[in-house]
Structure formats: C-alpha cells, structure tokens
Simulated assay, not measured.
Amino acid sequence: MPLLRIQLDTDRTTARRVIDLHRAGRTHPESRAAAEAEVWRKGYTPAAVPVFIGTTNGDPVRLVYEVEIYTDTTP
C-alpha cells in the first residue's frame, strides 16, 4: 500500500514529549488523531494507523507521520 507523509505543526515542548513517548514504545494519541484527520482532509482513506517517523528541524517544528492509504479512494 502507498504511504502518505503528513507533517503537523507543533511547538518544541510537544515535539519533545512525542519523541520521548515514541522512544518509550508509547504513542501520543492527540497527534496521531490529527495525522489521521489530515489524511481524511486530503481526500484519502487511511488503511492503517499513522506511524510516527520523527520531527523536522525547521521553525516551526513539525511532527512527521506516515500513513498507509487505500489507492482506490483517491480525491
């Protein structure tokens, strides 16, 4: 299945918390839900839960997720 990369604007404190949770083997439900909502907003149907990839180094900091999508439901 194809992957759609999603970047979510955030602040450095939240980004650090998401990274710490990821390293501990846990998830950040709010950002995961926001990534899934962004997939729907772009007109695609998620095939799996969003997977946290990391953060950007820019300003503003962005959380990066990859989400598997169904190809038969393109916008």
Rank of each mutant, 00 (worst) to 15 (best):
Q7P: 00
A48N: 11
E66C: 07
G58R: 10
A37G: 14
I6Y: 11
T45C: 05
P75F: 09
I53E: 11
V61G: 02
Q7L: 08
T56W: 12
R16I: 02
L4A: 09
S31E: 06
T10F: 06
D59M: 14
I6G: 00
Q7W: 01
T14R: 05
R12N: 05
A35K: 01
V51M: 07
E36Q: 07
R12E: 04
T71A: 11
P2W: 14
L8K: 02
A35N: 02
D59R: 14
R26K: 14
P60W: 12
D72S: 14
F52Q: 02
P2Q: 09
V61R: 09
V67W: 06
Y70L: 09
I69K: 00
D11A: 13
A48F: 05
D59P: 04
R16H: 07
G54I: 08
T14H: 08
Y44R: 13
A33V: 02
E68I: 01
W40T: 12
Y65N: 03
L3R: 13
R5S: 08
L3S: 06
D9I: 06
R23E: 08
G43V: 05
T13G: 09
D20R: 15
T55A: 02
H22I: 10
A35V: 01
T55L: 06
G25P: 00
A35F: 08
D20H: 12
P75W: 15
R23P: 02
P50G: 08
A37R: 14
M1Q: 10
D59T: 15
R32W: 02
D11W: 04
G43F: 05
W40R: 15
P29G: 10
L63I: 07
A34T: 07
E66H: 14
T56D: 02
S31T: 14
R62H: 09
T13C: 04
T27E: 03
H28K: 10
P50D: 05
P50L: 11
V67R: 03
P50W: 04
R23N: 12
R26I: 01
V51T: 10
T10R: 01
D59I: 15
L4H: 08
N57I: 10
A47N: 03
T14M: 03
A47R: 10
Y65C: 09
V51C: 05
P29K: 09
V18P: 00
I53K: 12
L4W: 09
V67Y: 03
G54D: 03
R62Y: 11
L21A: 13
M1K: 07
G58M: 09
M1R: 12
R17K: 09
L4C: 13
P50A: 15
I6P: 01
L3G: 01
E68L: 07
E66Q: 14
V18L: 05
G25T: 02
L63Y: 01
G43H: 03
V61D: 01
V49C: 11
T10P: 01
T71L: 13
